[in-house]
Amino acid sequence: MDVSINGPKILFTLPVLGGINITESVVHAWLVMALIVGACLWLTKDLSVQNPGKKQIIAEKLVLMVRGLVDSNMGSRWAHFVPYIGTLFAFSFVSSVLSVTGLRSPTADFSVTLAMALVTFVLIEYYYFKNKGFFGFFKRLTEPIIVMTPMNLVSEVATPLSLALRHFGNIASGAIITTLVYGALTALSGFVLGWIPNTFIASIPIMQIGLPAVLSIYFDLFSSAIQAYIFVMLTMANIAGTAD
C-alpha cells in the first residue's frame, strides 16, 4: 500500500517561451470556469418579468445574496463590486468543492490562491490611490510616525500573502488529511479481511464505509464554503477600508 501526497501533476507542456508547464490546477481551474459560466447561462435562460420560472427565482436569490453581502459589509457606494465579489466567491467555492469528484481542487495549489489574492491586492492599492490621492497614498505608509514605515510596508505585503496562505492551507490540509485517512482505512481493511484466501472477499473495502463521507462533508463542503466566505469577507473589508 502506498500513500502518495504530491503537488499538482504536470499534464502537458506548451511549447512556447521555452516550455510552459500546464498543471492539473490550470486544467481544473478552466473546468471550474466552464462550470460556472455554464451554470450562469443555464440559470439566466429565458428570463421574464411576468412569470418567472424556478431557475430565475434561484438566480435572483443568488444575486440578491451577493448584493446583500456587499451592501452590509462595504456600504451602498461600493455596489459596483457585486460582480467581482460574486465571481471570487463562486470560483473559490466551486474549485474547493471540486474535490468531491476526486479531482484535485485548484485552490489546493498556492499559485491559484496567490493569483486570487494578488488581484485583490492590486484593487486595494488602486483604491488607496483613488481615495487618498498621490500624497495620501505614500503618507499612509508613514503613519502614525515615520519610524513605522518598515512595519507598514511589511504589513502591506502580508495582506495578500496571508489571504492566499489561509485559503491554500485550509484546502490543502483537508486534501492531505483525506489522503492519509484513505490510506489508513485501506491498510485497516487489508488487515481485517486479508487473511481470507479468496482474493475477491479480501479486496472488499469494508473499512472505507462511512468515515470518508463524514470527512468529505466537513472538508469538502463546510470548509470550502467557510473559506470562500472568509476570502470574500476579508477582500471586502480590505477594499472598503481604503476609504476611511
Binding site: I5, G7, S162, L165, R166, F168, G169, N170, A172, S173, I176, I226, Y229, I230, M233, L234, A237
Partner: peptide, 27 residues
C-alpha cells in the same frame, strides 16, 4: 459573521505553522 471573520484571522498563525510544516515535509 463577525465571529467567523475573527476566527479566520486568529487562524492565520496556525496556517503559517502548517505551511512551514508542509514545506519541511514535502519540499
Amino acid at each position: 459573521s463577525t465571529m467567523i471573520l475573527g476566527c479566520a484571522i486568529a487562524e492565520t498563525t496556525g496556517i503559517y505553522s502548517l505551511v512551514v510544516a508542509l514545506i519541511l515535509l514535502f519540499m
